[in-house]
Design a protein around this nucleic acid. Structure first.
Length: 841
RNA sequence: GCCGGGGUGGCGGAACCGGUAGACGCGGCGGACUUAAAAUCCGCUUCCGCCUCAGGCGGAGUGUGGGUUCGACCCCCACCCCCGGCACCA
């Protein structure tokens, strides 16, 4: 590729009062520079550059096949910020890859008869092509595809490391089952309304042997975000999701009367509950067990058995939707058994009810209707006594209309009476611990991550089930356990791999006897746990990452992506990183030091874009009409990046016009001659102020105001040129800065103009301009004069005006005098450089 | 219900640390160029009222109602609405 130069055949536009200029033709320019940059390896990130490293990561796309506006909205501003970093002297790593495993590939295969492998790789090729039209500085030499065996091999390797450490385990558990996807889902993948986040089908429960990763082992550490700069919103969502509660585990005595033993030999002598309200223990009037609680069959009275069984059956049939529906009346059944409140000595009837959740706390709730709204409703429903033990202020002993959950003074609580309930909480916890009836404990809402999936297009779990040895890890030389190409992948509820004889039948690595492979595959969030580590050395085969490069590049300095991943990817990835840290594979406690969530781009109607609504904006179409640079800038100009918002087709012309003005400005000779010194100083002031504004805006990802500042500068230069001779040096400085500052947002036009104005290739290897604070000083300011806080006059005064003079001028203003109207001046407030406020009355 | 974020012209949005509300852009209106249109360029454009109307003057105004302050889009209190998340978590 030769140096770009204006060609004779080019179309020209005539500017009023200016010689004919070549026309701005983004199509031609953009294609040409993309080729040149690729040929020159301009965006290859060296591992050994002397500059400080900066790892700028943006979330990789799922291989849906088409790059939509949402991708552009996420990536173009990220690219701009990364380019800015680079110009500021950092060695910036800005990689890209493809999240390539997952259900859609399989569904497409079933629907259209294309193999998931083929579907995925075709999509990758198309998306890579589309991504390249963005003109981003992605280092394609580091591309990662998560469905490549050389990638998922390390998923398996990690899995085995976690398994060795007891962080991966298999357990029988009631799992979220999507009848449509025919697979289990992690809790995070069930929407609040109880439907599958992928297909919207109501999720049901199934008891299944599943693989889990022990995320709860890191619950407390995951709750600590003090080492990272993340949006408050995401931090709040993670905290909320993990939700730590401090309380006490307390035993209730279980001494079943003869004849009440459901089964011979009930060895348990207690039921343990978890409570955060130990202070209310004297108010317990029922014990509520989750229907699936293991003690239930043992302690149910024979005459209650039928009803209890019916209720258990009813509870397990509930979909998440039923179970979560609001305003539902409390249901439950009495077991016929009692337990003993060890503190009060009272007998307490044992019930089962589905508002007690097996997985939370101990799966058993002490029912305190007076001080817990759920228990209150339950007691009302079944006529259980409501015993007040924490007196509300001014309580006259009347029955409560609803649970009183606030602190108060303890009553009816034996030796703890009269204590403030907050103190009572501690006193009772101490007492319980001293008596050996329980201990303080912590419960989390967070549950372990269910990672196995009964689907084909994913990473096979590298375990062999041997009838003699049980589950046996595949030894490292046996990795990767390859996903067979020729599987029948119709969903049956069992993994499609289960029907693949050659895959399933194997020998036990331990005893060499016949054995069967695990046929479940891993959740695709496993892939996104560490893809950013693989970018560093995508083809390294002695480990998941070249350790030297891991030390150099990790952790990620800046991560950008959508907030929808707050409690899935972003939580799993933090967990995973911490596990890797403890395995000695990475250093540091957090994978992503800074996070920024862009908002969501909506259709022109303000609704989520969807084919069915017909409000989808096709990026390719916008690009072919206006060019990549215009489209990139427009996405950034729409509004604050973290807010997202509707895409308005009309507005893009504003950016288009602006880039054309920049084009004309840079290529036209300004009128020569002796320039007015005031105008020269003004031009330099505008330029240096703009450099400051743009720099500060880019640091904070405020692309919309950055572009507004560049437009203002452009407008100023246009006017300056119209209104007389221009100082050549000041003009050159302005154009130079303008082009450098335009380069991150509109890389192609900036490069073209940079070259056409005789500057050395490439603008993207130039340093970012700096500003001179002295030159940004205004000579004149507008002094606002207020009377009683209302603006009454504006005076043009020298910036360094003396206070006395300013006050004098303000009071002398006829407009101000008119508004004072002879009233007494009480005081005059002077704010240097801003205003004078005359207070009268 | 709880936790975050937000409510500013016709529209997207701007406003530093409490000091000119409406930058920048779209749209609209008027004008220049053109046979014409497109494109481009220039001017005006928060609302209301008034006047001696190329201009000028006054009032109101940042979801609502209060408060603090010389001065509030910004701080405080109460409330309404919108968006996102969580929601029987003991």
């Amino acid at each position: 590729m030769t140096e770009a130069a204006p060609r004779k055949t080019e179309a020209r536009t005539v500017q009023p009062g200016h010689p004919a200029l070549p026309r701005y033709d983004p199509k031609e320019i953009e294609k040409r520079w993309q080729k040149r940059w690729a040929a020159d390896g301009l965006y290859r990130t060296p591992d050994d550059a002397p500059q400080p490293k900066f790892y700028f990561l943006t979330m990789l796309p799922y291989t849906s096949g088409d790059l939509h506006v949402g991708h552009w909205y996420a990536m173009a501003p990220s690219d701009t910020a990364a380019r800015f970093r680079r110009m500021r002297g950092y060695n910036v790593l800005f990689p890209m890859g493809f999240d390539a495993f997952g259900l859609p590939a399989e569904n497409a295969a079933i629907k259209e008869g294309i193999h998931p492998h083929r579907w995925t790789y075709d999509n990758i090729d198309n998306m890579r092509r589309q991504l390249k039209t963005m003109g981003a500085m992605f280092d394609w030499s580091r591309e990662v595809r998560t469905c490549d065996p050389e990638y998922y091999r390390w998923n398996q390797w990690f899995f085995l490391k976690l398994y060795e450490r007891g962080l991966a385990y298999r357990a029988l558990a009631p799992a979220n089952w999507c009848p449509s996807c025919q697979t289990v889902l992690a809790n995070e993948q069930v929407l609040p309304d109880g439907t599958c986040e992928r297909c919207g089908t109501p999720v049901t429960r199934r008891d299944l042997e599943q693989w889990f990763l022990r995320t709860t082992a890191y619950a407390d550490e995951l709750l600590d975000h003090s080492k990272i700069e993340w949006p408050e919103q995401v931090v709040a969502m993670q905290k909320n999701w993990i939700s730590r509660s401090e309380g006490v585990e307390i035993a209730f005595g279980l001494d079943l009367p003869a004849g009440r033993h459901g089964a011979p030999g009930v060895e348990e002598t207690e039921i343990r509950v978890f409570t955060t309200r130990a202070d209310t223990i004297f108010g317990v009037t029922s014990m509520v067990l989750a229907p699936e609680h293991p003690l239930v069959p043992k302690l149910t009275a024979p005459d209650r058995r039928q009803e209890i069984d019916k209720y258990i059956e009813y509870a397990r049939r509930q979909t998440e939707i039923d179970r979560m529906s609001m305003e539902r009346e409390k249901t439950g059944v009495f077991t016929g058994a009692y337990c003993k409140n060890l503190l009060s000595g009272e007998d307490v009837p044992i019930w089962i009810a589905d508002y007690a959740l097996l997985w939370y706390g101990t799966g058993a709730v002490m029912g305190v209707p007076a001080h817990d709204q759920r228990d209150f409703e339950f007691a009302r429903q079944f006529g259980l006594p409501i015993k007040v033990v924490v007196a509300p202020p001014d309580w006259d002993g009347a029955p409560l209309e609803q649970a009183y959950v606030e602190p108060g003074t303890m009553v009816n609580s034996g030796r703890f009476d009269v204590l403030p309930s907050e103190e009572g909480k501690q006193a009772i916890a101490d007492y319980v611990e001293a008596q050996g009836w329980g201990r303080r404990s912590i419960s989390y809402r967070l549950r372990d991550w269910l990672v196995s999936r009964q689907r084909y297009w994913g990473t096979p779990i590298p375990i062999v089930h041997c009838p003699k040895c049980g589950p046996v890890p595949v030894p490292e030389p046996g990795l990767p356990v390859l996903l067979p190409e020729d599987a029948e992948f119709k969903p049956t509820g069992e993994s499609p791999l289960a029907g693949h004889e050659r895959f399933v039948n194997t020998t036990c690595p331990k005893c060499s006897g016949p054995a069967r492979r695990e046929t479940d595959t891993m959740d695709t969030f496993m892939d996104s746990n560490w893809y950013f580590i693989r970018y560093l050395s995508p083809h390294y085969d002695a480990g998941p990452v070249d350790p030297a490069l891991a030390r150099k590049w990790l952790p990620v300095d800046q991560y950008t992506g959508g907030a929808e991943h707050a409690v899935m990817h972003l939580l799993y990835a933090r967990f995973f990183w911490k596990a890797l840290r403890d395995l000695g594979l990475v250093d540091g406690d957090e994978p992503f030091l800074r996070l920024f969530n862009q908002g969501q781009i909506l259709g022109p109607d303000g609704q989520r874009m969807s084919k069915s609504r017909g409000n989808v904006v096709a990026p390719d179409e916008q690009v072919s009409r206006y060019g990549t640079d215009t489209f990139r800038c427009y996405l950034m100009f729409l509004g604050p990046w973290d807010e997202g918002g509707p895409y308005a087709f009309e507005g893009i012309t504003g950016i288009w016009r602006w880039l054309n003005r920049v084009w004309n400005l840079a290529l036209s000779e300004p009128p020569a001659g002796a320039a007015d010194p005031v105008a020269v100083r003004e031009m330099r002031r505008v330029t240096h102020k703009t450099v400051r504004r743009v720099t500060e805006d880019l640091e904070r990802f405020r692309f919309n105001t950055m572009l507004a500042a560049l437009m203002e500068m452009t407008n100023h230069l246009t006017k300056a040129r119209e209104s007389g001779p221009v100082d050549a040096a000041a003009w050159d400085e302005s154009i130079d800065s303008l082009l450098r500052m335009t380069a991150p947002a509109a890389p192609h036009i900036a490069e073209e103009l940079w070259t056409r104005t005789g500057r050395p290739y490439s603008v993207h290897q130039q340093s970012w301009p700096t500003w001179d604070a002295d030159l940004t000083q205004e000579e004149e300011i507008t002094l606002v004069v207020q009377v009683n806080g209302k603006v009454r006059d504006r005076l043009q005064v020298p910036a360094d005006i003396e206070e006395a003079l300013a006050r004098e001028m303000a009071l002398a203003s006829p407009r101000v005098q008119a508004h004072i109207g002879g009233r007494d001046v009480l005081r005059v407030v002077y704010v240097p450089g801003k205003l004078v406020n005359v207070v009268v009355r």
